[in-house]
Design a protein around this nucleic acid. Structure first.
Lengths: 235, 235
DNA sequence: CGCGTGATTGAGGACGGTCAAGACAAGTGG
DNA sequence: CCACTTGTCTTGACCGTCCTCAATCACGCG
């Protein structure tokens, strides 16, 4: 967490197109606001540059974060460098919430990113007196668990094309604006999320493009032209 | 949950060797007792025969369960029958705990199994008044999330041999008695847990046997003869 | 003791990985 | 404004791990 203190405070690097501001397309009720607003905790804003580490695996979990703008990947590494990305966190998403004392996955900014953060201790304290807060923390962890369970099915049993189809539908749901999505992450990140190589991801996308299921305007700007056929490709 | 009402109440089918009674090798503090004891909830005992469904995917989560004796698998299915087992639950383990209203995975008894169960609603109620209970429920869900995150790394990035090595070390830790483990599940279950086929699991085990890393006394009775070498095989 | 389910083993094939070359886009500096 | 750099993405050829299909084996149970 040392870099937080030395971090140059970027005057909110505006993420041109890719990434986007806070104000998620589908406000499932502001995850953080439901807590901070309710209890009146102090939330600080902070910024990270592209590829900057936010916290490391097994580091003490001092803060809980919410993405204001930008995007974050959380991941685990094997000793030889193989990486599994557990989740992508986009504007509005909370990440880094732990019931225990340390972070189970590392976190990095995918692009220039601004986060809001509160001390874990203060949340714990609030949860100790306010049962509504405690309930909300549990629900957020349960939401992450649900995603992880779905993702285990993908990683263990889906084909490459099914994984990419699932990914596109997930991102479409989470960050599409006006029918178009601007992916903040590169092909390698997508591969490490889906348990594939970047080449396999690229080939699957090319194939979907050739079939007219999606359109490109730049490698990371994607329009889904036929969600139904994509859904059929997803087991 | 219909079968619960029609269930013939087996007079506690004693699981000869395989499975085992409650009294886990490593009592991390009784998960259930910490709650039921504290609040004085009514816990009922119930039994399921081998391969019997305990609840289905997306079924309303009416109860929370603890394995008394036997073993349980929780899993998700794709439409064409491909299956991903998310976790094995052994004596002492709690399963079926949901923050939401429905079960995210289906649950089946692997062998004849006895469970203790309490109504989800009564736990919720207890959590609403007792902050300690609320904290414990959160911690249990967080524990499941930790396992799922580790398992995503396995499913997305480990080789077949690494997966089997990880599995053996996990089962050794969880159910070894006197240096030997009696696996309750078949090769197909192991494969569906590890994202492999049963043949690949069998080949990996045979290879480990040939190398003297483990010994068999029956296909499901395994002795680890060299945990260090097994740990080296696990990335 | 014989049957049946589950486990092992083998042969062949397919899907995705590896390695490598080239295309493309965005940003930089002359 | 354009050449150059750099990182990313695409595409191709080949390879290897794991899957599929099949036969046999062996253990556990009636």
């Amino acid at each position: 967490m040392a870099q937080m203190l030395t971090q140059t405070f970027n005057t909110q690097a505006i993420n041109t197109q890719i990434g986007g501001k806070i104000a998620p397309a589908h406000p499932v009720s502001d995850q953080f606001g439901a807590i901070t607003g309710h209890v009146g905790l102090v939330a600080t804003e902070f910024s990270y540059r592209k590829d900057e580490e936010i916290y490391g695996e097994d580091e003490p979990a001092e803060y809980v974060y919410q993405v204001v703008s930008g995007a974050v990947r959380t991941y685990k590494l094997l000793s030889d460098g193989r990486r599994q990305i557990g989740a992508f966190h986009l504007a509005g998403d909370v990440f880094g919430l732990e019931s225990g004392t340390s972070h189970r996955l590392a976190a990095e900014a995918i692009i220039d990113t601004t986060v809001r953060l509160v001390k874990r201790g203060s949340l714990e304290k609030a949860a100790g007196t306010d049962v509504q807060v405690a309930r909300k923390l549990w629900a957020m962890t349960a939401g992450e668990l649900r995603h992880a369970e779905d993702h285990m099915l993908l990683l263990g049993r889906k084909t490459a094309m099914e994984r990419v189809a699932t990914f596109l539908l997930e991102m479409d749901r989470r960050l599409a604006v006006a029918g178009m999505m601007a992916l903040p992450m590169c092909r390698r990140d997508i591969g490490d999320y889906l348990g594939l190589t970047l080449e396999t991801v690229s080939r699957a996308l090319s194939q979907l493009h050739a079939q007219g299921i999606l359109g490109f305007s730049g490698a990371r700007q994607i329009v889904l032209r036929n969600r139904q056929r994509l859904h059929n490709l997803d087991a």
